[in-house]
């Protein structure tokens, strides 16, 4: 692929690889793909300096559709891959992408601990409350009485996972919720998330038109968060626990320093390590 020229502004479309997505027509993830390209263009991050890292699932196909560096790894481990990359290469803009199953079920432990560790990266979760790639099972964010899940015909009967509350409690430094239907608004939030130091979580409600067609209505139900982003975790917690998952916007902006071990050598020659073993 060709590198964009150094002087001209890089347009959003230049961040697309040209590979045709596997997504269903009408899938919310198309909108998110557009938002990511707009955000990268908005920040003028050169494609070779960004890496999009994902696991498995419909939305985890994202790296392939972008012209940046990318890694499409195994199910649930995107944040671990992304952490290794960011620690080793702090100069890169690292963005992890994925869905609610990948991030909050099989990848739940990494989600919690990456919030805690707070590396300077952005995690975009396209939440559609269902496993789409395996054709319609309940996910951790599915409501308990959804009866169409093929493994849970009577509904899951268990409370949905609350990713933003968990993220806050675990130490994420930036928490936002967006809608895939609002492509420009989402792009602006992603730009903020990338700019903000530390671990930024952007939950994007992204309808699955095939297995959750009722989610087409989301765009009429979402409410922009009525107040500005808070840096007070207690206030953020109260808001997140009472909003029924439908407030959008930047909901929490913390000020913890990002995790980044230094990579500067203190000795000039590896052979000096020998000394401790010499008698």
């Amino acid at each position: 692929m060709t590198a964009p020229s150094a002087c001209a502004l890089i347009q959003p479309k230049e961040y697309k690889s040209g590979v045709k997505p596997v997504w269903c027509p009408g899938c919310g993830d198309f909108g998110v793909l557009g938002s990511i390209t707009k955000a990268l263009s908005g920040l003028q991050i050169r494609p070779e300096n960004a890496a999009i890292i994902s696991g498995i699932g419909c939305s985890s196909r994202m790296p392939t559709y972008l012209s940046t560096y990318g890694f499409h790894g195994v199910h649930g481990r995107a944040l671990a891959l992304a952490t290794g990359l960011k620690v080793a290469r702090p100069d890169l803009t690292v963005i992890a992408t994925g869905g609610d199953g990948d991030g909050f079920s099989i990848g739940g432990n990494h989600f919690m601990h990456t919030c805690r560790r707070n590396p300077d990266m952005t995690y975009i979760v396209m939440d559609n409350q269902v496993y789409g790639m395996t054709k319609g099972q309940a996910s951790p964010t599915t409501e308990p009485n959804w009866e169409k899940g093929k493994l849970t015909p009577g509904g899951t009967g268990i409370n949905p996972f609350q990713p933003l509350v968990i993220a806050l409690a675990s130490g994420a430094n930036f928490i936002a919720r967006c809608s895939s239907a609002d492509s420009n608004g989402t792009a602006r939030v992603i730009m903020e998330a990338i700019r903000h130091p530390g671990f930024s979580l952007v939950q994007i409600l992204s309808p699955c038109v095939t297995f959750r067609p009722e989610q087409r209505e989301w765009k009429n139900m979402l409410i922009p968060a009525p107040v500005v982003a808070t840096s007070d975790p207690a206030q953020a917690a109260r808001r997140l626990l009472t909003d029924e998952g439908l407030f959008t916007g930047i909901l929490y902006v913390g000020n913890r320093p990002a995790y980044q071990p230094t990579l500067e050598a203190s000795i000039d020659d590896v052979a000096k390590l020998d000394e401790e073993f010499q008698l």
């Binding site: 890292i53 890694f71 290794g84 432990n109 990579l263 000096k272």
Partner: peptide, 28 residues
């Protein structure tokens, strides 16, 4: 750290192996 490297204590072995794959992808 003496030679400009880094060790990260991971949350489990699944994270360890994936972190090293990520770092190696990045050239380290």
């Amino acid at each position: 750290p003496k030679v400009g490297g880094v060790l990260v204590q991971a949350e489990d072995e699944l994270a360890s192996i994936n972190q090293i794959i990520g770092a190696s992808f990045g050239g380290k």
